[in-house]
Design a protein around this nucleic acid. Structure first.
Lengths: 136, 136
DNA sequence: TATAGTTATTTGACATGTAAAATAATTTAA
DNA sequence: TTAAATTATTTTACATGTCAAATAACTATA
């Protein structure tokens, strides 16, 4: 019987956790987490996304975004503004402070990402991409 | 600027989440989660591990095990027994019910694992293994 | 236009994970 | 042998994530 630690579900979960912990430690001086940084980076691409748009981009449940945005808002990194076209929805904008931090964390994420890519061959990187696509 | 959804941290995290959700749904009829199933599968290999041993095998913090074992114990799937050689420690054993479920979930995990392996080439599977090892 | 059905977001309940502090037992060393 | 250091586990506080239900606003239709 094969050791369950060889199963993809286990290895992927453990790797994801380790990477997340690495980044969370790296970001500690900035008072932010990897998950929160994804929001900032999403807003760097396109500001004024709403909760649903962020959830889709981050591949998370809408309700997960509520808490993430709450914490960023509490740190004065983003703001919710009522969508003038749809009063149910909030559009999310960065503050100046948030935008500045967004650039900082982007650089940090990118940097370790290149290290991770160095550990993997081209094809293996494709494998992860493919896996995610197949699962979506 | 590269889209952060192409970063390995993002893709690995999202894939891990999707796989976890898949299994958690699959296991719903059994009242168990993927994380809990890892404990059962670890005990199937070697019964009587203590919390620390389980944590090491599962690559989790000791304190994460407390809750996981609590829930399994509440469902009468495992039991804590004081280690006769060290009264600080508990040795974890499965109940008959737990052992039976362990076999069932092992088969289910194995089955979808083979599907996942089918999506990836040999080399890509090695990549994930290598990544985890490099991060450990 | 009233109403029924959708949609965006939040809330609440729960499982998971980390980190740091608390407990309790074991080990080491003076 | 007693005190100090270490070790196993739990607890607490918090961030994350899912799911289902609640709100509130929009849309379509009779």
């Amino acid at each position: 019987m094969e050791d369950f630690t060889n199963f993809i579900c286990f290895q992927l979960g453990a790797s994801a956790r380790k990477i997340q912990n690495y980044y969370n430690n790296l970001f500690k001086p900035y008072g932010i987490t990897l998950g929160q940084s994804f929001i900032l980076m999403a807003l760097l691409q396109r500001e004024g996304l709403n909760i649903g748009g962020l959830a889709e981009k981050l591949m998370l449940d809408n309700s997960a975004l509520t808490g993430l945005v709450d914490r960023l808002e509490k740190e004065d990194l983003v703001q919710r503004r009522v969508d003038p076209e749809d009063r149910r929805a909030y559009l999310i904008y960065m503050t100046d402070k948030g935008r500045e931090l967004a650039h900082t964390v982007y650089a940090l994420v990118d940097q370790f990402n290149q290290q991770l890519r160095g550990m993997l061959g081209e094809e293996q990187q494709e494998g992860i991409k493919l896996l995610l696509k197949s699962l979506s």
